[in-house]
Structure formats: structure tokens, C-alpha cells
Design a protein around this nucleic acid. Sequence first.
DNA 1: GAATGAGTTGTACGTTCGTTCAAGTTCCGG
DNA 2: CCGGAACTTGAACGAACGTACAACTCATTC
Lengths: 214, 214
Amino acid sequence: MSRPGGSAPQRDTPVLTERGGVRKAAILEAALRVIGDKGLAGLSMRAIATEAGLPLGALGYYFKTKDDLILEAFELHTRREADRVLAAFAGVGSGDHADDVAEHLTAFIRHGLTEARTSLVAEYEFLIEATRRPDLARVSRAWRQALQIQVGHVASRLGSDDPETDAEILLSVVAGLEIDHLSTPLDPSTTQAIRTALRRTITRLGLRGDAERP
Amino acid sequence: MSRPGGSAPQRDTPVLTERGGVRKAAILEAALRVIGDKGLAGLSMRAIATEAGLPLGALGYYFKTKDDLILEAFELHTRREADRVLAAFAGVGSGDHADDVAEHLTAFIRHGLTEARTSLVAEYEFLIEATRRPDLARVSRAWRQALQIQVGHVASRLGSDDPETDAEILLSVVAGLEIDHLSTPLDPSTTQAIRTALRRTITRLGLRGDAERP
DNA sequence: GAATGAGTTGTACGTTCGTTCAAGTTCCGG
DNA sequence: CCGGAACTTGAACGAACGTACAACTCATTC
């Protein structure tokens, strides 16, 4: 509070007026793009600045260190992705058949492997890095837990007799399918294989909303 | 062949006598360890040299570039891991029940998340990097294909009516469970959750060797 | 219209990086 | 025991890195 002699403009956290907030957001978006297509190994402050179209010096004003920036980028990603998952499952109701649910999930994965590929790769970069950084691990755990609760509700709606386990299985299958097909361009036959796997999983788990409910 | 003036000792590939091979292997092992606990972002030639207990200059003799080294490390890892998977499934016979199979897989995952955690993290580092490097992508695809064939045979032995799809589902579930639990220390309740998910998956897929076979 | 503070930037610091290489040692066939 | 090939090494190169900061512009307030 009272630091008389200091002329240091650097605060712990910038005040973030409207004007500044736009720039901060642009930096985080740029960072997510760079992480997605060059990896955390290829992530440099200079690369972010170039991607965002800003001078290098600008980054130091909004983020104390590179690690802070990475953490905030991950938080932004999870917030955004949670919304997307929520929206994807909002349409899945108790009137749907197993195949409808499978189709929803197939579209979800297909989107991640094509239009949103950069974002998906960034996501896994974060998840792996979370193995080594407690701050990222906290975000990762919270996000994963929120996801499992959401999917658990959906499973429940679809007549699961063990929603928690089914949520774990579904989340794992989706994550596994994503990872396993990240190194390959997504051709139609691959999409079909993903659809088949999802249909079988959902059918065998007995997830269909048209079942009788108590 | 005939490069008269050149005194360059650097070949495309060193001849690798017994003497040299030991060192090369030590370098690759060191690289795998460093990738596992500092990530590809934290991987430097100096870090590898230190981990291997060798001078920095030694690395240049066996690997033309850092990227070459990473590729060979990945190849080594997939070779080793393929053997491990093969061994893990060698014990799964048509006499096993669904719970036996689940127990095998649970132990497999538990081992990866504890004793072999470094190796598992390195594996996912490679898989993500393969998104950006065609040479790594080739290795990744070949490995994944070999895995699927192996697991498909096992599924077949266990009475699957669609071994290929079941292999894809099983591999995805295992990969997903690994990733989802990498950021968390593996406590007993987590192990139990993994076991439950695997049991349910295998049971619902109808994978049990004691079923009648043609 | 001066003062205050947020926002902005070019530059420069010290460090670490991948790679190269001349000079050396060790090994082994002839 | 000699000659060449395999192997080893420490030092050095330019490039890229994260971070810090003095100097600057701009908007807002009194």
C-alpha cells in the first residue's frame, strides 16, 4: 500500500479497465493458439506476442511470469470447454435413443478433431503439464470433477443404474478416442469407427432415455 | 563415399560397435526419463547429458539433431511397451472370467500410474508431439495399429462378437482412465473406481472366456 | 491545464539453448 | 607396432530465451 520511494508500475495484478481487459484476453487467446500448434515446448513470450500482434513488452504488464500466463490460459480453456460440453449435452434428453446419444458424442469428437483441433491439442498439453505443476493439477481436477458430475446427470437421465461409473466410462472412452485419433487426419472411415465404438459402448451400458423410469 | 578433403568424423549413422551401442542406449534411456519428468519443453541436450552422466559433446556423436534423438527415444519406448502389453495379455486366456480380465487391466493401469509413471507421462508427451511431427506420427500409428490387433485377438479369445470394435473401446477406455488420473496421486479409492469402470465395461461388452465357442 | 495513474513499448540484461569441431584417446586388423 | 577408424571431449558459436524497466502516450479527475 505505502511504498513511497518505489516508482514501480508493476502491480501484483493490473487493474484491468475495459481497455486493458481486451488486450489481456487477446494475449490468452494467442497463447492457446500457440500452445495448440507449437506445443508448450514451442511456446515463447515472443511467439505469443507475434501471434497476438503485440510488442513483447506488453506481455509483462498483464502477466508476472510465463507460468502465470499458462495457468490463466488453462483456466480460460476449461471455462470455455465446460460451457461447450454443457451445451453439447443440453440436447440429450430422456426421449433420445442410444443412437441419438452416440451421434451427439460422435459429432462432439469430430468437431474436436477437425475445426477445434488446435484447441484439443492444447487441452492435452495442459493435462500432461498438470502432472508436473500443482497449480495446473488443481484446475485439471476441478474441471474433470465438474465434467463427471455433468455427464453423471446425463447418464442418470438416460436410465443408468450406476451413473457415476457410466460417467467415468464415457469420459474415458471419449478422451481415449480423441487421443488415439489425434495423430491421424480424420477420414470418413475413422469417423465411422468412432461412431461404431460409441454406439456399442452406449448400447451395452444400457443408456437409453426411452427406458421406463421410476 | 569419396570425400577426400573432409576430416568430418560425423557420419549419417555411427557404426555402433558394442562399445558405442551401450552409450547410445544410455542416452536414449536418459532422454526418456527427462521427458517423463520435465516434459519435452524441459528436454535439453544438456539435461540429457547430465542425466546420462555424459559430457554434452557425446550426444552429437550418436544423434545428428535433437529431433533425431526424440524420434529414436519414441521408437525405443514403443518397442518396449509393445512387449509389455503383449506380456500383460499373454496371461489372459479363454478360461478367464470377466473379472479376471478386469483385474489384469487394473493392474496394468495401476503400474503405469505408479512405478512406471515417468514412462507413461513420456508416452503421452510423444503422442501429443506426434500431432505436429510426421515422423513421430508414423511411429504412433504403427504402434497403435499393432496394439489394436493384439487386443483384438484377446477380445476374440474372450468371445467378442466384434473384436475390432471391442479392441478400440478397450484401448480407448484404458487410455482415457490413464490420462484422467495422471494429475492425481493414485489412492486406493481411485484404484477401486478404475476397477469398477473396467469390470462394468468388460462385463457389458460380454467379454468372458468361459462362454461357449464354436 | 496540471496532476495522477493506467496503458504501452523498445531495448537491453544475463542465461540457456542446439550444434559444431579441433584435438584428443582407444581399439583393432594387418 | 603401425595406421586408420571408432570414439570421446571441452570449448566455443550465434541464436533465442524470460524478464525487467525507463521512457512514453493517453484518458480521467480536480
